[in-house]
Amino acid sequence: MKAFTYERASDAKAAVRAAAETPGARFIAGGTNLLDLMKLEIEQPQHLIDVSRLPMAGIEETATGGLRLGAAATNSAVSADERVRARYPVLSEAILAGGSPQLRNKASVAGNLLQRTRCAYFYDTSKPCNKRQSGSGCGALEGLNRNAAIFGASDACIATHTSDMAVALTALCADIETLTPSGDARRFPLADLHRLPGETPHIETHLIAGELITAVVLPPPPPGAQAYRKVRDRASYAGGLASVAVAGGQVALGMVAHKPWRAEAAEAALSSGASASEAIAQELAGASPLGRNDFKIPLVARLATAVITDVAGRAA
């Protein structure tokens, strides 16, 4: 790890102020992804602002019948919350499909959203990676890219976003609340948080530098059942090959793109009466596999069809 200085923020406004004033500053909460990357010097912050003890770990009801998840709430706390389990089971299931209990006990809501890709070429600092070092090239493009994106990739980057939680939140049409460096609060759809890689895969979100996520806001649950399913190479404690989150008629896919992938084409087809398999076929018509990850097309088709059908059956 490169040397850095550390401070524990006293409140959120002080945290964003410090971030704005200190060169190379980064927020740290659970640190399960940031420290992993700092040890490899993929991340090299000069200053860490610890926001894990700010009073934003609570889970509270919103006026509109939704839930506000504090950004510093641990993944475990969210997945175990009885309101989450009762009203947003897809979220609890998705969180529980990720990492390990120990990681979930430490990882925060915001940190989970901002976790970086697990692409092997990103992790090996001797390999070219435009995400790690802009302009160095993409080692994965012609490499062992079995787990690469099938939607929205570019020649600069074919990495996937590997969060499970974010897939469920996308299907639930969650918003995020932030504090900007100037101390202003703002709120926008989670769908607008992550970017597709384009030519700048090192820029992963639409956050302003030094902007702090303070909460995730869940709207009231959509009518219908919910489910999350993830496919992976071993039974637990492994990144996914693909996942699907379904909440009523809302569908999101995981590990298929640089961001959690809202399956809008499939949703539109479903709402106009298409079968689950027809709907997901519409979505996959827009996919661009690379060869080694071709299997994701039938995998996603079968997985999403099964889960959408199952959820529809449960709702009926």
Binding site: Y6, R8, I28, T32, D50, Q102, N105, K106
Partner: peptide, 15 residues
């Protein structure tokens, strides 16, 4: 009282 991975934890954050 909660289990965590101590390798992914800065000691100064546990003051």
């Amino acid at each position: 009282g909660v289990r965590i991975n101590s390798c992914l934890s800065l000691a100064v954050a546990h003051d």
